[in-house]
Amino acid sequence: MDLQRFEMLAEAWGADLARWPQPERDAAEVFAGMHPDVARRVLAQAGTLDAALDAARDVQAGDLLAARIRRAAPKPARTLVWRGAMAASLALAVGLGAGYAGAAAAASDVDSAYFTGVFGDLDADWAEWTENGA
């Protein structure tokens, strides 16, 4: 391996020889052993860029994203049972409520019809009384 190849590999793969293509590692180590100063300079330069890249390895998530992800996560079985029970209770309550409302509406209609009839007659009586009085 010559310097040009050593530099090309450092440029492409960075300063860590363990990341270099396997077939060239041994030759690279031999080159570095024979030219330690040059190798050190080339690897230091590549290492500076590696370190800069590593600064961007992780990005911390905001609370909103974390909450969205957590919300989609599997729920404990007891939570599902509890939610099922709640849903059943809610359905029952809605059913009972609807039944009560229907019955009340029906009763209201009957009462309304009854009172309309009574006062309808009363109106007629009142008109008749007025005419007689006039």
């Binding site: 390895r57 994203l65 599997p74 404990p76 079985a77």
Partner: peptide
């Protein structure tokens, strides 16, 4: 544990993998 809805396990994976995936 995550499949069972274990919140500690869910938090552990999020802590270790979310910054990496987001990055």
């Amino acid at each position: 544990r995550i499949a069972e809805g274990d919140s500690a396990a869910i938090a552990a994976l999020m802590e270790r993998a979310l910054p990496r995936v987001l990055g």
